[in-house]
Design a protein around this nucleic acid. Structure first.
Lengths: 411, 411
DNA sequence: CTGCTTACTTCACGCCGAGATTTAACGTCT
DNA sequence: AGACGTTAAATCTCGGCGTGAAGTAAGCAG
């Protein structure tokens, strides 16, 4: 029931390269010595493989440390400027393109406003021009880019062929995108490898790599914005399900048959605690108009003690706690991280109540093994998380440089 | 973020053995020729590895097929009697021990009634005596048993050491088992490898191997009995979460703050649609007394058109549909299988309503990629599913025979 | 009996990681 | 200053792996 593909002896080398590269990436500069004990590879193999990685230019020596009495250890690290990554956030109001080096240091960024029209062709052209801008600004040639990670709204249907990124199809309700062949449109503008996922999921990735999820192998990043979403991490990798749409937490039912939701159903979590819903219930604002200001006003009112605002937030905390309890029962994570812009805003006030409600609603065994924390990442994290998509591929493959010419030829 | 362990060249061989063994196991007798094309291994490697498996006695030749004009193909299959498996179901009312051969054909079975007392020591003694009975009845020596799979009620905390089965701790509310060192107790009676999991999960395994879940890589088996549980299969393997308790679906909230549940919380699915809850709501029966008869009576009443019974079942179908919609949204499976004794009883009547409600409550994209079906396995499937636990280990390891003496020495 | 087709086996090859051995690069002691 | 001890890294040998080519086995048709 768990078939593993056949492996040849070459895969062993790739696995070793990947292990060393990944270890160097995450655990800073290390000597060959330390790498050996940390990864379990013999000293000989470490020497051999690191030598290969050095001649490939993927890693470099950076100083040395004395080792009481003996030959000093030479430290190795991943060469930050050897390759670059692009992360793109297609948000509700803008398209943001950011260029990173391998260490995920931001090199250049380009924002373009996205007003009413969400025409796919237009978005793709904005991506292409943003790409040109950041590459020119940083003076990085396109061949040096490992790949482009993109966070889009809606459900992303992953491709399966030789160039999976180009087969991506996006179904986005908020943009009125119905089966948009997003990968194919993009492929007309760039030969670079494409990695597309839902924006909430890329934000979750950033949270796992650099935020509050760091260090856990099983976690759920709950994203609390206009709507509500989640990114489930199981055993260190994003849980996708059969067609990559797993983790649609916002439409979990908290009151079956209750409040109507924009998804067409009733009683969804999002219809009660999404920022859009909260603001509408607070002051009757029409959906879509300045939610952030409205939510801030709600929070101020609650902090001033206005009973209706306090009651609304208390109810939201209760429901969020119950819905988080469902996540705890179903996914049994080590950690739950609450993020998203609304989460950042309301989290400090609501966390104690959410935590307490989750304890009341969840089963005690899994609840006792989970901690609920707030995100500690800014909103720019979507591009960062998007950039981790090609980076993950790079590390998994043991530092394989994509052959852009072949990609172009494969069109 | 997805570290893979180091691999040596020996692991390659194990992987090849596992691939071939597994393919032979699931796809019946095959020639070396067909094995090669199916697994991707070269003809030379297939010959080499099958030769090894043949001398180990794990596989055997069984006839041949003409191949137009040329040398006939020799068919290979896993030797059914080469090793044996034990599956144990610790149910509410009895302990059932069944001995299987490698092909999971039932060889012998022993039932022992479990009345009021669920004392762990007593249960373990019943297992030991049942084990002796089935081995004696079938004339199989204990050294020939690959391992013992056990389905227990409650949350199972898996061990991590060299003998993980012996470190298993069980938290079972229905049996009043609080952190029972079940593995350690069992280890005092038998040196055989132990594999313990929740009974609902082993039932789910059986459903995936031989039931309605066959052939899908992502599925959720929803079990509908006195309580409600689920077994989540992700990418062909059971989804465990951080501490093996993932899939506790019964305590998902369908009405936050609603009906009190036996878990101490409120609004749980189980408090509305569990057989215990249904029967209680139907005729006020005290929990625990003859639920099966009560549920059958409820079904008869509904089929006779009694409005209160019809309304109760309709409401249950609506809630089940909504809760299944949550599963669809969160796990994005290819298939959802409804099983369990109450599911078998009520399923034929309720499935259309459940299916329709799930469509109303779930997001259309994942819903359109999921089918909801009824289980087609009998209640004896728990022991069968339990036996797949050691079998899975056997196939994964490439047909490694456990060294029982070493296990004994490790005490 | 010869030739043909197909299934399987054997073997040389390149590559792998482990582990032992050798070389390199320091500090220190005489 | 030079020999020595110590530790890090590089090199080398070895058994093992899967591949792919060459060789062998086993049937059938003429």
């Amino acid at each position: 029931m768990t078939p593993r593909g056949k492996q040849t002896v070459r895969d062993l080398r790739r696995s070793s390269r990947s292990t060393l590269l990944r270890h160097l990436y995450f655990h800073g500069p290390l000597s060959r010595q330390e790498l050996g004990t940390a990864t379990g590879l013999s000293a000989g193999s470490v020497s051999n493989v690191t030598g290969e990685l050095l001649t490939d230019g993927l890693i470099e020596e950076c100083g040395s440390v004395e080792s009481d009495g003996g030959r000093p250890r030479i430290l190795l690290r991943v060469t930050p400027g050897q390759a670059h990554l692009v992360g793109i956030d297609i948000g509700e109001t803008q398209v943001r393109v950011t260029l990173f080096d391998l260490a995920l240091t931001e090199l250049a960024s380009a924002d373009q406003p996205l007003l009413a029209a969400h025409d796919p062709e237009r978005v793709v052209r904005m991506i292409a021009s943003g790409l040109d801008q950041v590459l020119a600004a940083a003076g990085v040639p396109a061949e040096n880019v490992l790949g482009i990670g993109i966070g889009v709204p809606g459900v992303v249907e992953q491709g399966t062929g030789a160039d999976p990124g180009a087969d991506v199809v996006v179904h986005g309700q908020t943009f009125d995108w119905d089966a948009v062949p997003f990968g194919r449109l993009l492929r007309e503008h760039t030969p670079l490898p494409l990695y597309v996922d839902n924006g909430a999921k890329t934000l979750g990735q950033a949270e796992m790599w650099f935020g509050a999820g760091r260090g856990s192998r099983h976690a759920v990043v709950a994203l609390f914005g206009s709507g509500v979403g989640a990114c489930v991490i199981a055993d260190g990798a994003r849980f996708r399900g059969a067609s990559s749409s797993a983790g649609e937490w916002g439409h979990t039912k908290v009151h079956v048959g209750g409040r109507p939701c924009r998804c067409g159903s009733r009683g969804c979590l999002e219809a009660y605690v999404g920022a859009e819903a909260l603001v509408e219930r607070w002051d009757g604002t029409v959906p879509g108009t300045s939610e952030k200001a409205g939510l801030a006003a709600l929070l101020r009112a609650a902090e001033e003690g206005r009973p209706s605002a306090v009651a609304l937030l208390d109810e939201a905390a209760e429901l969020l706690g119950a819905a988080i309890a469902d996540l705890v029962n179903l996914f049994n994570p080590e950690r739950i991280v609450i993020g998203g812009w609304a989460g950042l805003l309301l989290g400090p006030r609501m966390l104690p109540a959410i935590d307490e409600a989750a304890t009341r609603y969840a089963l005690s065994y899994p609840r006792s093994r989970t901690t609920i924390t707030l995100s500690d990442l800014g909103p720019d994290a979507v591009t960062l998380g998007a950039a981790t998509l090609p980076l993950t591929h790079f590390l998994d493959s043991g530092g394989e440089m994509p052959d852009h010419l072949a990609t172009v030829a494969a069109l």
